[in-house]
């Protein structure tokens, strides 16, 4: 890597890291029992562990979302895709008596098909990404309902349930899935020239095409990958509650994922992305949710303070505001 990399990472991740620190500090002071951890049967329990467990699912989707957003697109269908994946896995376990591995493969296969559809609509038919993926966002839930016959599908398969509920090295498994996905994605995207292609296509599609970048394939891959991430999140949710609920699985997941990406410092205009930023953004979002819950803010009111906090983080990243703050800081230090 180049020398400026460390400083560059600090510049983009500084804001989110500070926000997370502020949140944790607030909780340490004002939320009783927030930082308490205990070990039972070789497994760690406590609020921070719950946050990591819940946040992992958002982070997994945010990883996929950040690549789509980097190509100057967006994927609104991740919630619906997660619902489809959960439904496919649950039905395969219940009716087919398939092994957990097979069920997961079927679920991920269905998700990738969804991603291919999104990619084809955006790249071949040149629909705007927001419109193209809105189609599946709406229709996908219907598909999931068809798969489950409109019922909540339950199953008895300890192996599958373990995907999300068991622990590894004392920490919940979803966290490890997320870490594994993060490492693999970072290795592939930054280790190959795919990352360059994604940023080039998102930054200037016309110029990338004229430089010979396979822009169509790059964009389709991003939608495929994002749908795969959504599918994994759907499988984990299904495993966690040991049921598939086509109506509620992955509800508002698209907004959480987009927010996580934005909080992590990735601009929606495309051309840049930060995988650590996406993960951090997801954790901030989940910490915020848990904080409000523990502060007894009712679930109906919770979105308002949540939105304010998100606004604050985003404002910290706004170039005009940053320039203004810098100016103020300098002016304050000078003549007066």
């Amino acid at each position: 890597m180049t020398e400026g990399w460390g400083r560059e990472a600090l510049r983009t991740l500084g804001g989110p890291l500070a926000a997370l620190a502020v949140l944790v500090a607030f909780n340490a002071l004002f939320t009783p029992g927030f930082l308490e951890l205990e070990i039972r049967e070789g497994r760690l329990y406590g609020v921070p562990v719950d946050i990591l467990q819940q946040g992992s699912r958002i982070a997994i989707v945010a990883l996929g979302m950040s690549l789509v957003i980097a190509t100057a697109g967006v994927d609104l269908s991740v919630g619906a895709v997660a619902a489809i994946a959960g439904a496919v896995a649950a039905v395969a376990l219940r009716d087919g008596g398939h092994a957990p591995g097979t069920a997961v493969s079927m679920a991920l296969g269905a998700s990738l098909a969804c991603g291919l559809l999104n990619g084809a609509l955006v790249v071949c038919l040149r629909l705007q990404p927001i419109v193209a993926t809105l189609i599946l966002m709406v229709a996908g839930r219907g598909v999931a309902q068809l798969v489950t016959d409109g019922l909540i599908v339950t199953f008895d398969e300890p192996g599958f349930a373990g995907l999300a509920n068991a622990a590894f090295l004392g920490l919940p498994r979803p966290l490890w899935w997320m870490v594994g996905l993060f490492v693999a994605t970072a290795a592939i995207v930054r280790g190959s020239n795919l990352g360059l292609f994604i940023e080039a296509v998102g930054g200037n599609a016309a110029a990338s095409r004229l430089a010979g970048v396979p822009d169509r394939r790059v964009r389709v891959s991003a939608y495929l990958f994002c749908a795969g991430c959504a599918g994994l999140a759907g499988v984990l949710e299904c495993s966690y509650i040991q049921a598939a609920d086509a109506n509620n699985a992955g509800q508002l997941l698209e907004l959480d994922a987009i927010l996580a990406v934005v909080i992590g410092g990735t601009a929606l205009t495309g051309g840049r992305f930060s995988l650590p930023g996406a993960v951090l953004g997801a954790l901030i979002l989940q910490t915020l949710t848990t904080t409000l819950y523990m502060q007894d803010v009712s679930a109906d009111v919770a979105p308002a303070p949540k939105a304010l906090a998100v606004l604050a983080v985003c404002l910290l990243g706004s170039p005009p505001l940053r320039a203004r703050l810098r100016e103020l800081a300098r002016g304050g230090g000078a003549a007066r």
């Binding site: 020239n193 360059l196 940023e199 080039a200 930054g203 110029a207 990338s208 430089a211 051309g271």
Partner: peptide, 22 residues
Amino acid sequence: ADGLVLDLSVRRNIELAWQARR
């Protein structure tokens, strides 16, 4: 508009076509 990816670095812009051909 059609040549450079303005947000990317000088190095990345110079590499782009070469990497794309690989």
